[in-house]
């Protein structure tokens, strides 16, 4: 298996899909010539490889970039557009939320909008709250969209290929914290289905439901807890919408305990949806209250000790798990 970063895995997925399908094109700010030219970045070298007709550097115009994707997709192209940082999703959101998500419905099922919006996200860069703000729950609140948030390079590659082939608009969120560490990725062609969660670590005692970069935190906590005889099952959602309810319920049948971990802020976060699902559809299996470990309800602060305080860590997760086991 090759060892590559998530940025490189995304790059492979983009390049492979562009080779496979001439209707796939890319657009975004600095995706061709950027201010940080680096082989770990997801669109590195694609302009050279595919040329300026298929790799479009755009003006700083998020609404137009998202609208470009909506319009191009209804005529059969397969746009993959990039939102540089998750907070700028708000500028693109009219086209994504009010149009991409709804136009098929409004057409009575006659039109389709096969587009992907790649969004870079995550705290930990000292960039402050206008660059770091996980808004996946916003996107997941829009029927008509699919929302994918991979936690490993291998998943990112397979899921992005599926997203590009999907006939629905997909919001594909990449945590930049995963761009810098190589992990194993299968060689050759493969896809991973959207809407299927993955047990990343089996365990009998507690189900930890998580996604994206927090998967790493879950693994660290699981290692600590294992030494104390507590076996955590890590369920990586990978896709938030459509939600793999089956996988969550199946795991809860086994463990009877649920802790949800995400970096986004707590109130209105997607963790609440998972908790509600557990109470609605798996109540009889639950042996303990459902717990959440999340970012606190504040904007992501700049100063290093404050930002560190914001990001959930393994110690918080260990404590939460113990509180439902002991």
């Amino acid at each position: 298996m090759q060892q590559i970063t998530m940025g490189q895995a995304v790059r492979q997925a983009l390049a492979e899909e562009m080779q496979r399908d001439p209707n796939v094109f890319l657009a975004g700010e600095g995706i061709g010539v950027g201010i940080h030219e680096s082989p770990v970045m997801p669109t590195f070298g694609l302009l050279r490889e595919f040329g300026p007709d298929r790799v479009k550097d755009t003006p700083v115009s998020e609404a137009a970039i998202a609208g470009l994707a909506v319009g191009a997709s209804v005529l059969g192209l397969r746009p993959v557009v990039e939102v540089m940082f998750n907070p700028f999703f708000t500028l693109a959101s009219d086209q994504i939320v009010n149009h991409a998500a709804k136009l098929r419905y409004l057409s009575g099922g006659k039109s389709s909008f096969p587009m992907v919006v790649r969004v870079k996200t995550g705290a930990g860069f000292g960039a402050g709250c206008q660059h770091s703000h996980n808004l996946e729950a916003w996107a997941a609140h829009c029927p008509g969209l699919k929302v994918v948030m991979p936690g490993t390079a291998a998943d990112a590659k397979g899921l992005l290929k599926s997203a590009i082939r999907d006939d629905n608009p997909v919001v594909f969120i990449e945590d930049m914290g995963l761009y810098f560490f190589p992990t194993p990725v299968p060689e050759g062609e493969y896809t991973i289905p959207i809407g299927v969660a993955d047990i990343k670590r089996p365990g009998r005692d507690v189900t930890v439901v998580t996604w994206s970069k927090m998967l790493g935190v879950a693994f660290k906590a699981a290692a600590i807890l294992s030494k104390e005889g507590i076996e955590v099952e890590i369920l990586d959602l990978r896709t938030l919408l459509p939600l793999d309810k089956e996988a969550i319920i199946t795991s809860l049948k086994k463990t009877g305990r649920l802790v949800i971990l995400h970096e986004a802020t707590r109130t209105g976060g997607f963790g609440g949806e998972i908790a509600a699902l557990a109470v609605d559809e798996a109540f009889s299996y639950l042996k303990a209250p459902v717990k959440r470990v999340t970012g606190p309800d504040i904007p992501v602060p700049f100063s290093p000790p404050l930002e560190q305080f914001y990001i959930p860590d393994e110690h918080q997760l260990v404590e939460a798990v113990k509180s439902v086991v002991l």
Partner: peptide
């Protein structure tokens, strides 16, 4: 990013 910063470290350079 210090406590004495004009925005108490919440904002930083940006």
């Amino acid at each position: 990013g210090k406590k004495t910063g004009c925005n108490k470290g919440k904002s930083g350079t940006l």
